[in-house]
């Protein structure tokens, strides 16, 4: 564990609490992509299968359980409790275009051709692009509630912080995880446009609005 990874994980935790806070206080999941949230459930379930056969640390296990449970709970809130506030007509990204290629990539790029390792690779690739339905939705509506943008920023910062973590680990432990690093750089890259608007507008106290 190092400072960057810890900060990244905390940022990930924060993003989930911000999202829950947004849903509970506005009693609405308007502006949140159900598809992206469903993809995160798939990401966590496929990646954290090793809960059953590999123990890393208490921290690691507790975080894994939290991410699985919270992502399922968010899905429940969107699907049942606040269902009328979700508008599927603007959440139209075709996730087949993400699931298919990620699966094929995981068959090609993995550390061992075994069930759990292929699913692990799949989850890494899928996480990298899982935000696309959400960003696509943002693009369509052209604006977002401020709290939603804080959620997205925390989520983006999480993977961005993993990049210095990997650099640090390379120098201190000689460890390189090419699959996670490549996917992580792609994932962070997808946020660049969003970050630009977030830093130049939202953090200056303006509303998140994309130029028409």
């Amino acid at each position: 564990m190092n400072f960057f990874r810890l900060l990244g994980d905390l940022s990930h935790l924060a993003s989930i609490f911000i999202l829950l806070h947004k849903i509970q206080t506005t009693r609405s999941c308007r502006g949140i992509s159900f598809k992206t949230q469903a993809l995160y459930v798939a990401v966590f379930v496929t990646r954290y299968l090793d809960l059953f056969f590999r123990y890393v640390s208490l921290y690691n296990s507790v975080m894994k359980l939290f991410f699985i449970a919270s992502s399922c709970y968010i899905l429940y809130l969107m699907k049942y409790k606040y269902r009328p506030t979700h508008d599927p007509s603007i959440d139209t990204f075709r996730i087949e275009y993400l699931l298919g290629p990620c699966f094929v990539l995981s068959l090609i790029f993995n550390y061992k051709f075994s069930f759990s390792e292929i699913l692990w690779s799949f989850s890494i690739f899928l996480e990298a692009v899982a935000i696309l339905p959400q960003l696509f939705m943002l693009q369509r509506t052209g604006e977002a509630e401020t709290i939603t943008t804080h959620y997205l920023a925390a989520l983006g910062v999480y993977r961005a912080l993993y990049i210095p973590n990997w650099i640090y680990r390379y120098f201190t432990e000689g460890l390189v995880d090419p699959i996670a690093v490549t996917a992580g750089i792609v994932q962070t890259g997808l946020y660049l446009d969003f970050f630009y608007v977030y830093f130049t507008k939202v953090l200056q106290g303006q509303k998140f609005e994309l130029p028409a």
Binding site: N60, F67, W120, L175, D177, A180
Partner: peptide
């Protein structure tokens, strides 16, 4: 290889 040492990141 990584598979043997396990994935210790989230």
């Amino acid at each position: 290889p990584l598979e043997e040492q396990g994935h210790d990141e989230l």
